[in-house]
Write a protein that binds this DNA or RNA. Sequence first.
DNA 1: TAGATTGTTAATCGATTAACAATC
DNA 2: TAGATTGTTAATCGATTAACAATC
Lengths: 215, 215
Amino acid sequence: MSGSTREGAGSRSIKRFPLYLRILREMKAEGAEFASGAVVARRLAFDPIVVRKDFAKTGAVGRPRLGFPLEDLIDAIERFGGWQTQTKAVLVGAGRLGSALLGYPGFSEQGFKIEAAFDIDAYHNQQIAGVPVYPAEEITGRVRKLGVSLGILTVPDECAQKITNALIEGGVRGVWNFTPVRLKVPGHVVVKREDLAASLAVLFYRLHKDEESLK
Amino acid sequence: MSGSTREGAGSRSIKRFPLYLRILREMKAEGAEFASGAVVARRLAFDPIVVRKDFAKTGAVGRPRLGFPLEDLIDAIERFGGWQTQTKAVLVGAGRLGSALLGYPGFSEQGFKIEAAFDIDAYHNQQIAGVPVYPAEEITGRVRKLGVSLGILTVPDECAQKITNALIEGGVRGVWNFTPVRLKVPGHVVVKREDLAASLAVLFYRLHKDEESLK
DNA sequence: TAGATTGTTAATCGATTAACAATC
DNA sequence: TAGATTGTTAATCGATTAACAATC
């Protein structure tokens, strides 16, 4: 048996944390001082055991009968999930999807901020949703100067790899990839692909399965 | 042990099928007649065992040494994943994200077609990327008339549930939900939520974990 | 005290990985 | 035949679910 104190977490589990955070912040705003796994589970219609286990992973310590001190729990989750510091991001490809993401108000709650955007067709002093847009040639330089660690990729497939290289050269360590391209990156860089085709496949399969069972 | 011939499939597995389909169609275009799991695995940098297992789930029958007859395999996958018929879809909320999806050319390869879009602010004869845009009031009627089975939701959070109800009333059986709202739907309706916050959490966690291990 | 909740340990389940016989 | 690949059966692994003692 390994002796590590802090257990890791699979991606299933991690995906639930934004939901917890949202609920817990709501509760805090309502003036609550404690939050029990049971209550959070009820609000999210989750199994309480799942919530308890997830909370345990963060290292937060609760009190029987009361639950977890709300502040501590939020803190522990933010630390656990990497939300405690504002991560700096840039977005490349200010087309329709890119603009949609730039206009999304929820990202600041998610612990990061889009500092700048880049596009081939950027014009002088262009801004989208308050974010300045620069020509794509300036990626590496500006990324390095700003100290950006996350790049969001909403470019045409053909240039995805090239842009990724430029981002990494500037010091980016994570890429949120909205293209279907399988990027080649060095080992220290994390890529998360947003795979719409895969999601759709899951939806189709379920849809289709229901149809079959109706026969 | 259950006696069912056809095993089900978890969503992990299903997510890989669009990738298989793409590779296999490429191979077909190149004039290949057979495709072995091994070759497909190599192209995708997957473990060959995974591919073999996935192919087996579709019911396709291969031949030792040769692999699977390409046509049969594509057919089997399409049938398995529900891609064999063009599913009709509508999109509601023709804002930035909605427009981005309407303009995405890859959906026809994914087995579905967006027949119409709806928006509060639709104007007469409006089209986006060739898809007609109608006022939101007409959802139920038009969905029923067109025989649409899939609704894509890119509306503001506040009206997500209301629009969903309208879609379901029109006969939609699947909802691809791009809002963070947890929709309430009857049992026969399938909802797939596209949860950007969850994806981001996974990315952040990995990013953060790497940072820690560098210390 | 009684009861709700935490925290831990064990059981179950499903998917991935491994091993190997069967086949062309 | 030799060798590559399928198809099946077993082993491993990780996550979910269950059970229960400890605690306030």
